[in-house]
Design a protein around this nucleic acid. Sequence first.
DNA 1: AATTTGCACTAACGTATGTTAGTGGTTTAT
DNA 2: ATAAACCACTAACATACGTTAGTGCAAATT
Lengths: 196, 196
Amino acid sequence: MARIKTEKNTSRKDVIVSKAAILFREKGFKAASMRDLAESVGVEAASLYNHIKSKTELLHELCFSVANRFLQKLDEIESEPISAIQKIEKILRFHIVEMVNNYEEVYVSDREWKHLNDPYLSNFQNQRRIYRKRLAAIIETGIKNKEIKAIDAPTAVLILLHAISGIESWHRSKQKITAAALEENMVTILVGGLTI
Amino acid sequence: MARIKTEKNTSRKDVIVSKAAILFREKGFKAASMRDLAESVGVEAASLYNHIKSKTELLHELCFSVANRFLQKLDEIESEPISAIQKIEKILRFHIVEMVNNYEEVYVSDREWKHLNDPYLSNFQNQRRIYRKRLAAIIETGIKNKEIKAIDAPTAVLILLHAISGIESWHRSKQKITAAALEENMVTILVGGLTI
DNA sequence: AATTTGCACTAACGTATGTTAGTGGTTTAT
DNA sequence: ATAAACCACTAACATACGTTAGTGCAAATT
């Protein structure tokens, strides 16, 4: 009857959530079973329910904690007195760093949100839509100011965001370049591609 | 006892496979049930097994038919007497057109291949790895010939491929720009970002 | 030290899933 | 017209799943 081991300032629920992130990333939300999760936590499946309400709750936690981090950072960057292209670069770098350091969570939030249930689902979709619109607005500004090529802003956003999610492949590749080098390469290509 | 309707030159199995693509794209492979699929085909679940061997077979068919199309096109483009950056642009355009016209299949092949079983799984992963290496080799050549910026080639490949998969979002968006405009925008940003 | 709370356990439930067996009608080929 | 192949059906199976109920030990609180 060994308990779930926690480090200080992390609840047992936190442990479960972060093991869930690893598992959901690896197998996908639907394919990952509560029994799998229990095993990776070192406990019986039923015991998980002393700490969480449901499997989907785990997905909520992951999706919204990631979404909130990005929204907060966007607030911050939007209000800085810098050029549009500089904002885009900052956001891009933040995404990359997040994807590198919080791989599992960010990945799961990006790929598995479809399995959320309403009202969380609509909620998440809205946040996502709004986030993208705000990015597009920054790009529009950059275009108006002749910093950025005259392209379709939503398309540019979609390229940026999806390109970032490619870091998944980097994570799993054998011969990785350093995270810093990865970041510079991505910025070179993407910011370079946008700039006039 | 109405039979599955086929158009000429398509077997009943083909009908099932393409309905499966739609369903797998929408719900994900694991979450899409054979009973769902049966309903969308207009038949009882058990009846599907007169035409297919298993659920995973549907995934094989989808994944490998897509993979083969891309491999074949790459063979073709590789042997053309054009510059590296032109090859990259051609491949990019092919990917975009495929993603636009064969949305469901390409998407499923890209996102759901994890649920393949061995030996298909390793097989698919190998093909994927090799495909990417060949793309990276083209980029390396371009760098050597000073057509392309001195970046990490595998990173560039990963950005290209994932950016393309962003067309998913375009497909679902309400106010779409035309497919042609999408293609031009993507080429502008991505080829522009690679070129010196 | 006594009491309350936390938490992991076993057992089990209801449901959904992929799939098989067997039957009989319908289309195709002879 | 007869035989053969095709194919959709009903019924059912075994398994895997998320989750609940109830029990008792261990830790935290008083």
